[in-house]
Simulated assay, not measured.
Amino acid sequence: MDIETSIKQDMKSLGCDSDVKISLAYQLYIHLVDEKLMYDTEYCYNKDVDTLYVVARPRKNEKLNIYVPIRTYDDISVEFINKMQENLCTVESGHSINLAFIEGDSTIVIYSFTKGLVERPSSQKVTEYRKKEERRSYINSELMRHRSEILNDALNGGMVDDDDCQVLD
């Protein structure tokens, strides 16, 4: 029996019945062992999320990293990433998870996701923020444009009429 068959049978014995998941995990495992030369590389299965994944250390004394193999054309959502982090992250591995996107030609691209980062604001909040920034930019440009007059009035005790004042939100 060759090594590939042996590893794939071992992955199947962990509880994973999907040949696709086993194939992806095998490709990732070989990539991390042979190309990335990672330490303590092991494959694991979590039945709660039906996921076959790989854990490895990039360097001998670093913490374990979690690598989840994903096909490049699979839809990935923030909920999926959160679910993986909740079910796979441990005290030893920390709050990060690595999604390894695997293309049909065995190209592997790895992205890291860390739990606790700020979620993307809604489009309404972005619009409000842009308006606020535009207003701030306008005020700064007006202050710069009238800088010499403002400084001159400040140094000479200039008077400001109530009619010249405008309250800004």
Rank of each mutant, 00 (worst) to 15 (best):
K47L: 01
E42A: 12
I30P: 09
L32D: 00
K60N: 04
C89W: 04
L151F: 11
V68R: 00
D19N: 13
D50K: 08
H146I: 05
V49N: 08
Y45G: 01
I3D: 04
K47M: 03
S112A: 13
D153M: 05
V33M: 03
Q124S: 11
E92Q: 14
K131H: 12
F101H: 08
Y43V: 00
E62A: 02
Y73T: 11
S123L: 08
I76F: 11
T72I: 06
R130E: 06
Y138H: 11
Y26T: 02
R147K: 14
G158E: 06
I81Y: 07
E62L: 03
S23I: 01
P69W: 01
C44Q: 04
S13A: 13
N65W: 00
P121R: 07
L14H: 12
G15S: 04
L14Q: 12
E134S: 12
E134M: 09
I97R: 12
K125W: 07
T51N: 02
E79D: 15
E42L: 10
N46A: 09
D164K: 15
I70Y: 03
E86A: 09
M159V: 11
F80C: 05
V20F: 10
I66P: 05
Y39L: 00
M144E: 11
Y138A: 13
L24E: 05
R136P: 03
R57S: 05
S141M: 08
K60P: 05
E134V: 14
A56K: 00
G158P: 13
D34C: 10
D17W: 01
K36A: 07
Y43H: 06
S93Y: 09
I7L: 07
S141E: 13
S23M: 01
L155K: 13
N61H: 09
K83G: 03
M84Q: 01
S112K: 13
L99G: 14
P121K: 09
C44W: 08
A25R: 03
S77G: 14
I66W: 05
T41S: 12
L117Q: 15
T127L: 15
D75M: 08
D169A: 15
R57Y: 01
Q27H: 04
L32A: 02
D163K: 07
S122V: 01
D75V: 09
K83C: 06
Y111W: 14
I3R: 06
Y26S: 00
P58N: 06
V33D: 02
S96D: 14
P69D: 01
L88Q: 09
Y29T: 05
L143Q: 03
D162R: 08
E42V: 13
I110R: 03
D162G: 13
S141V: 04
S13G: 03
N87K: 15
E62F: 05
Q85D: 02
Y45R: 00
Q166V: 15
Y45L: 01
D75H: 11
K63V: 10
H146L: 10
Y45K: 00
V68M: 02
I22M: 02
Y73H: 14
K63N: 11
K21L: 02
V54D: 03
L151A: 10
I66V: 12
D48E: 12
E103Y: 15
D153Y: 00
S122A: 10
M159K: 07
V126W: 05
S77T: 15
S6F: 10
E92C: 10
Q124D: 13
V160M: 05
E103Q: 15
